[in-house]
């Protein structure tokens, strides 16, 4: 107990000091993205890992959050920072609608519906040009030149989301979420309104993902439908972050976010320019191999199977 607190304090301190020590914009950028993915991965994990409702469409919430911020700035002339609040709320409303429609059904319907929702939202954002500028995308002016404000905001958002997820999972809601995942009939007979609590989980999950989306709009200052509503780069990435880090653990998605951003960037940059250029095209392939490896040898992810990993390394002299 005490040791884990020391570790948490050490990680927190390291993250706070990181941009003051490492001045490179490039590395700061990577950690900002990783921190954003801590939020999205944790959100996905709350819904899929703990509540057992697997989402293949978290891009819906991410994109809704991003577009809320973008449209506020672009159409209404309000600072895109307002999107941080409103982006979460609109994403949560979208989440509620999807949950209201799908959660009365059991089994894989929710997962299927989320894939469909992702495509629907991407198409809407592409075609409704008067609102979203379509394929042209939305561009705003970045508020800050320095990466530091974005860095600390991302850090705050990641910490806040993890704090909330941890709090929720130690409460009545957390027990209900896991009960629903383990056996919906048993949960219902124990007095748990399963439809309601699946929606509660989805609401929290979509809210934080929407906030991450709004942050992305503010930080990158440019979005288009193929980026923020992407099945591949957002929805699937959210699943990978969760699975590789460790489903149904608080720290899993956080670690998974750093691993995935690291792997993605290593290959995207052709192993930092050392390998031939075609390597950069292969990062999806590497993701696939990574997932196969994790599912075969550490089905509970890096955090979930940590004791196993530790044993493996300690056994060697």
């Amino acid at each position: 107990m005490k040791r884990s607190r020391v570790i948490i304090a050490f990680i927190a301190l390291a993250l706070v000091l990181f941009p003051l020590v490492v001045k490179s914009d490039y590395y700061q950028h990577l950690v900002i993205l990783a921190l954003m993915w801590v939020v999205i991965g944790g959100s996905w994990n709350l819904l899929a890992g703990y509540t057992g409702q697997v989402s293949f469409g978290h891009a819906v919430f991410f994109g809704t959050g991003a577009y809320t911020a973008g449209i506020l700035a672009n159409k209404l002339g309000i600072s895109a920072w307002w999107g941080m609040a409103f982006g979460g709320i609109t994403a949560a409303l979208v989440g509620l609608f999807i949950g209201w429609v799908c959660f009365r059904l059991r089994g894989p319907y929710f997962a299927l519906a989320t894939i469909a929702a992702g495509e629907i939202f991407r198409l809407i954002a592409t075609t409704w040009e008067s609102l979203t500028e379509g394929m042209v995308g939305i561009m705003i002016l970045q508020t800050f030149r320095s990466k530091l404000p974005y860095y600390y905001l991302a850090l705050l958002l990641a910490a806040a989301s993890m704090f909330v997820f941890d709090l929720v999972m130690k409460s009545k809601w957390g027990f209900y979420f896991i009960s629903i995942r383990e056996d919906q009939d048993a949960a219902e007979s124990l007095g748990i309104n399963t439809t309601l609590y699946k929606n509660v989980s989805l609401l929290i999950s979509s809210f934080f993902t929407g906030m991450a989306g709004a942050f992305y709009m503010n930080y990158m200052a440019f979005i288009d439908p193929h980026v923020v509503f992407s099945l591949h780069y957002i929805s699937i990435m959210a699943i990978l972050v969760g699975i590789i880090g460790g489903v149904a653990t608080i720290w899993g998605p956080a670690l998974g976010a750093f691993i995935m951003i690291g792997v993605q960037e290593t290959f995207r940059s052709s192993i930092f320019g050392l390998a031939p250029r075609w390597v950069s095209q292969s990062h999806a392939l590497v993701f696939g191999l990574l997932v196969m490896f994790v599912i075969l040898y550490m089905a509970n992810g890096v955090v979930g199977d940590w004791p196993k990993i530790k044993r493996l390394f300690l056994r060697r002299p």
């Binding site: 009545k172 027990f175 209900y176 896991i178 009960s179 383990e182 056996d183 009939d185 048993a186 949960a187 219902e188 007979s189 124990l190 007095g191 748990i192």
Partner: peptide, 30 residues
Amino acid sequence: CHLGIGRTFQVVKPLKRMTVLENVMASAFS
């Protein structure tokens, strides 16, 4: 359940990946 009618299942339905205590706590929250 909230009205005060509890039941057990013939084909037992433990919440497998929770501990015994957590199983009972989940229902105590009702």
